[in-house]
């Protein structure tokens, strides 16, 4: 069974996210910061009357901070909490060609933690990202 994935761009790379998990793509409005929260949590924003926790995907992947460049975010709900995952750009929604393949490359820790596997799509090969692990962020992982 193939799945459709959303192709997004983070820190210059393309990533694939299972499309059925993404409720919508929004333009980020005002983000209220959360003092003392883990670094990858950029803050809170509101989508209509729902509060969303904004995740900085670059920081969650333990990459270099991308400045204030994030304008778009993917809205998803995990364990009843809404999240807005800030990304650089959304490219497309495409069908995956086959199942994700095991990773043979040695990846940087952030990628290694969040990636499910390599996925071939009609627009090229990219990593399929597990949203839950992305949202959990580096600190949580260490604690576990």
């Amino acid at each position: 069974m193939t799945q459709s994935v959303l192709v997004a761009r983070v820190a210059g790379e393309r990533i694939a996210i299972p499309a059925q998990l993404v409720q919508s793509v929004i333009r980020l409005g005002e983000v209220v910061s959360v003092p003392r929260a883990p670094g990858h949590i950029a803050g809170l924003t509101t989508l209509r009357s729902q509060s969303l926790t904004v995740i900085d995907s670059a920081l969650a992947l333990e990459l270099e901070p991308q400045g204030d460049g994030h304008e778009l975010a993917l809205v998803t709900t995990i364990d009843g909490c809404g999240y807005a995952i800030a990304i650089d750009a959304v490219e497309n929604v495409v069908d995956a060609m086959g199942e994700p393949e095991a990773l043979s490359l040695k990846l940087a820790p952030g990628w290694k933690r969040c990636a499910v596997g390599k996925l071939e799509t009609s627009v090229g090969v990219m990593l399929l990202i597990d949203l839950e692990r992305l949202i959990a962020g580096p600190e949580q992982q260490k604690a576990a």
Partner: peptide, 17 residues
């Protein structure tokens, strides 16, 4: 309620509008 990572700081209980 707010994301568990935020309550884990021990500083917040939730979010209001």
């Amino acid at each position: 309620p707010v994301a568990p990572a935020i309550t884990a700081t021990g500083l917040y209980v939730g979010v209001v509008q």
